[in-house]
Design a protein around this nucleic acid. Structure first.
Length: 571
RNA sequence: CGGGGCAUAGCGCAGUUUGGUAGCGCAUCUGCUUUGGGAGCAGAGGGUCGCAGGUUCAAAUCCUGCUGCCCCGACCA
């Protein structure tokens, strides 16, 4: 492609509303433009990268026997009602009426629609199957952010596996696991595969593929010693057992004027205790019922653990008014002692604790000498706390690290939830009708595109890995008006094109400095500079974007060397 | 949904406090000079000042309402 006739709108300044590095660079370098909040247009350069990422994914999906489909974005309400997710997705799904008044929605994922086709399978002899597609997904995110990292319309590769039994699902899951590892390796990512919460997907096991970056929104707890890694939504850890005193024969109320927080109470002079000697009382509304959630004062609730453990349609923190009427006190003085009629869930870390301090359900008062098992009627013990840095690894006991990650892929074992809901059954070898066992596997194409930029850039711009670069080589014609200069450039350009190299010829009538800056900004891995200076000696300059390494190539064999360098880095 | 900020030319911004009919840099177009890391000079084009009301002789500027976008939090496959 010739730069002079291409649409590559580079900008000198960062866009004012961009925060994430990938957002700034993708806009500045002319890969993407925003249309509205969380919705982006891909420009020619952006699409070229997207196409390459898709090609890698397609290659690996085909390798494990995947068959490519294309399903609609526009879905009827009925199909989503059969799985119960029309309601469950709530505001996150774009839902509206067509002109006849039929309710329709934009697909945020395609379990229901694929399962609709899966129902056509009739015999175990047709299994296993792996089906996939690249398709737009629509999710009305509460807060789109960080450019292409969190958007409302995006392209996803989603695949689905169909098997006769759980053992078959294990095989398909494992095949995807390995395919994903290869995909991310070809994208140049060092990823961590972590145990994750399945969230609204249902199912019993899920693995997230995490890329360590501060631009991410998830946090992962990982052990450097044994390799344990899990999303903090699911991660567990071991902590030092607490040593409690004998305590009192019964809880004793004491005045704590002005104390509203755990920190207040630990600094409180008359009767304050450290946070790990306090019981934190949170109030939740679970399907309309008020529930108390207890944690050690210095621990943080991992809300997803609560959601995963209690089967509920709706779960949310209670409003202050609801708290007031349920317990008779405001947050700051809440406690579970004597909280009759309210279900109490306690975190495991509180098990067996004595001589604790908690709110008295009376503003400005707390109780001391509280012994959990004696004084509080706990309805359920659960692991609810979020792990933090330095706590013990649950498998080997070494110290855990916690860091920010971006979710670049997620694979789920769905089981029979959708096949049962949609009536997707086959006859097994005994002639009995059984639901198909399914898995679901996703990779966000645009998110991965942005993720590559997050982990491959420097102060001059993007540094694309050869595998996904929009062009592998840019030929910078220093002086396009000089006939020798242009002719030499054209020769290399044509030779590389014939060899199947993606090459961009910068034949613009611009000053060399502008061309160098632009080439660095858009991040082409290799640059060939053809100028009068070099041509006098029969050479062109060959430069690597990543390490800046430069060497002169004899004009006559330049294209051969360049091709070898490119092919060497393709994977 | 709660809190904060912003909205003026394709991009980045000033002008708003104290109302007087819109400006700077980059980009674009023309000419000349220049040409190996975002050139210089001269000239030119381009704006319903987010939208709708209101106040006023006069509104980018003051008042009211609305919309959009960004950030923090909540939320989130």
């Amino acid at each position: 492609m010739r730069w002079s006739t291409s649409f590559i709108p580079t900008l000198r300044d960062d866009p004012a509303d961009a925060e994430a590095v990938s957002h700034k660079l993708l806009v500045r370098a002319g890969f993407a433009r925003q249309l509205m909040s969380g919705v982006y247009s891909l420009l020619p350069l952006g699409l070229r990268v997207s196409d390459k990422i898709e090609a890698i994914i397609r290659d690996e999906m085909n390798r494990i026997g995947g068959q490519q489909f294309r399903l609609p974005c526009l879905h009827p309400k009925e199909v989503w009602e059969r799985s119960g997710r029309w309601e469950k997705m709530g505001g996150e799904m774009f839902q509206f009426e067509d002109r006849r008044g039929s309710e329709v929605g934009l697909g945020m994922t395609h379990e229901e629609i694929f399962t609709h086709l899966v129902a056509e399978l009739g015999s175990y002899k047709q299994l296993p199957q792996i089906w996939y597609q690249f398709q737009s997904k629509f999710r009305d995110e509460p807060r789109p952010k960080s450019g292409l990292l969190r958007v409302r319309e995006f392209t996803m590769k989603d695949s689905y596996s169909m098997d006769i039994d759980p053992e078959g699902l294990d095989l398909a899951f494992d095949a995807h696991f390995k395919a994903y590892r290869r995909i991310f390796s070809r994208l140049g990512f060092e990823i961590v595969a972590v145990e994750a919460s399945s969230g609204s997907m249902g199912g019993d096991q899920s693995v997230e593929f995490m890329l360590r970056t501060d631009a991410g929104e998830d946090r992962v707890a990982a052990c450097g010693a044994c390799g344990y890694a899990a999303n903090v939504e699911k991660a567990t850890s071991s902590i030092e057992p607490a040593e409690d005193g004998v305590g009192l024969t019964s809880p004793e109320k004491f005045a704590t004027p002005g104390v509203r927080t755990i920190a207040d109470l630990s600094n409180f002079k008359e009767g304050g205790v450290p946070a790990d000697r306090q019981i934190k009382t949170l109030v939740y509304v679970v399907d309309g019922k008020t529930v108390l959630v207890l944690l050690r004062g210095d621990h943080v609730l991992a809300e997803q653990k609560l959601i995963d453990n209690v089967e509920a349609k709706e779960l949310r923190p209670a409003h202050e008014q609801e708290i007031q009427s349920a317990l008779g006190a405001r947050p700051g003085s809440l406690g579970a002692v004597g909280a009759e009629g309210l279900f109490v869930i306690a975190d495991e870390a509180l098990r067996g604790r004595r001589d604790m301090v908690t709110g008295a359900n009376e503003d400005g008062f707390h109780l001391r000498g509280v012994e959990i098992h004696r004084d509080i009627e706990v309805g359920g013990w659960l692991d609810l706390r979020e792990v933090s840095v330095g706590e013990g690894c649950p498998t080997c006991g070494e110290s855990l690290d916690v860091y920010k990650c971006l979710e670049v892929g997620h694979i789920f074992k769905l089981g029979t939830f959708y096949s049962e809901a949609m009536g997707a059954q086959v006859l097994n070898s005994n002639g009995k009708s059984v639901p198909i066992v399914m898995g679901s596997y996703g990779i966000g194409v645009d998110r991965n595109l942005a993720a590559v930029v997050e982990s491959n850039h420097d102060e001059s711009g993007i540094v694309w890995p050869v595998n996904v670069a929009p062009f592998e080589v840019v030929i910078t014609v220093v002086k396009p008006k000089d006939v020798k200069c242009l002719e030499a450039s054209e020769r290399i350009y044509e030779a590389l094109q014939e060899d199947g190299i993606d090459v961009l010829l910068d034949d613009r009538d611009e000053r060399p400095g502008v061309k160098f800056k632009d080439a660095d900004l858009i991040g082409i891995p290799f640059r060939v500079t053809v100028g009068p200076k070099g041509l006098e000696n029969g050479v062109v300059e060959f430069k690597s974007r990543r390490d800046g390494e430069t060497r002169d190539l004899e004009l006559v064999r330049a294209s051969v060397t360049i091709r070898e360098s490119v092919l060497d880095q393709r994977r």
